[in-house]
């Protein structure tokens, strides 16, 4: 068992800092997808704060764990987590995120951003790439793991299910798929656009070992990640029930914050809810 580093309080503080970076970034760059970044902030805090075996001083360390953000639109959260993990400073991030002439694109990109292995942006790509990485690790006899974070909406993509068939067939128990199940996709609620339920049963039917958790409960996230693989010879799927826009009262569970960026007043209000005084 790989013990998660960091106490729930430390992880909570890391998540709070990730959220404040996300708010400042999306405000300054006037970009979308703030809600998608906030829903996964707690998961990222645990991954980057206590799970991923990575080294900010050697981003290309060959034996590192890999993290693939398949929901590339939520890159603000992932960049913020990398900043907190020491890959670059949050000031640098704020100055470069979605700015003219920078490389820090509004869908996660590996070009010019240390710590990012895989660029995504079109949905339904990440699980296949992660499965390829996991297979390479298996056949090379490495102990490293591959974590991939998916959105619920991208489970509409057929390619996601091609990869979902593939991973158990090849017994990729070094592969961990986490679904940020915030229940809102681009044009509405998941249940209204294209129902995924029974969601857990689908992954089970595809022969994944599945756990459903509260994606905002640090103890649950940590305990679940400590138990990877849930079953030897089987890839692990964590369906994390989350709230879109989590952490900012007026953004929570609102479709609009898939698109809107906070204006100055909203930023101040949001930050003050997080205990930040400008």
């Amino acid at each position: 068992m790989q013990k998660v580093k960091g106490s729930p309080l430390e992880l909570q503080e890391r998540a709070r800092r990730i959220r404040t970076h996300v708010l400042r970034m999306t405000h300054r760059a006037r970009t979308s997808h703030v809600g998608s970044s906030l829903s996964m902030a707690d998961i990222l805090a645990v991954l980057y704060g206590g799970v991923l075996r990575i080294d900010p001083n050697q981003p290309d360390w060959p034996d590192r764990d890999r993290f693939v953000l398949s929901k590339g639109h939520a890159c603000a959260g992932a960049y913020a987590a990398l900043a907190e993990a020491g890959f670059f400073t949050s000031d640098w991030l704020l100055d470069h995120f979605c700015q003219d002439g920078s490389y820090v694109a509004g869908h996660i990109t590996h070009t010019g951003v240390p710590g990012v292995d895989v660029s995504t942006g079109s949905l339904g790509h990440g699980l296949s790439i992660a499965a390829g990485m996991a297979l390479a690790g298996k056949r090379d006899g490495k102990n490293s793991r591959v974590y991939v974070l998916l959105s619920d909406g991208e489970c509409d993509e057929g390619s996601t299910w091609e990869a979902a068939l593939f991973a158990p067939h090849h017994k990729l128990d070094n592969l961990v798929a986490i679904v940020d199940y915030n229940k809102i996709q681009s044009l509405g609620r998941v249940e209204e656009v294209l129902e995924l339920e029974p969601f857990s049963a689908k992954w089970k039917a595809f022969r994944w070992s599945v756990r459903e958790i509260d994606g905002h409960d640090f103890a649950q996230i940590s305990e679940t990640l400590e138990r990877i693989p849930f079953e030897a010879g089987t890839p692990s799927c964590i369906i994390a029930h989350t709230v879109k826009g989590k952490g900012v009262s007026f953004m929570e569970d609102q479709l609009a914050w898939h698109y809107r960026s906070p204006n100055a007043e909203e930023l101040e209000k949001a930050l003050s809810e997080m205990g930040v005084k400008e």
């Binding site: 990485m133 090379d140 091609e162 068939l165």
Partner: peptide, 26 residues
């Protein structure tokens, strides 16, 4: 056999998996 893979009738996954393998120096 360790460097051969039949992904099935799934070309999108074939190409994504290939990219993942290549990103691990294959």
């Amino acid at each position: 056999p360790a460097r051969y893979l039949n992904v099935g009738v799934a070309e999108q996954n074939m190409t994504g998996v290939a990219a993942g393998l290549a990103l691990c120096n294959k």
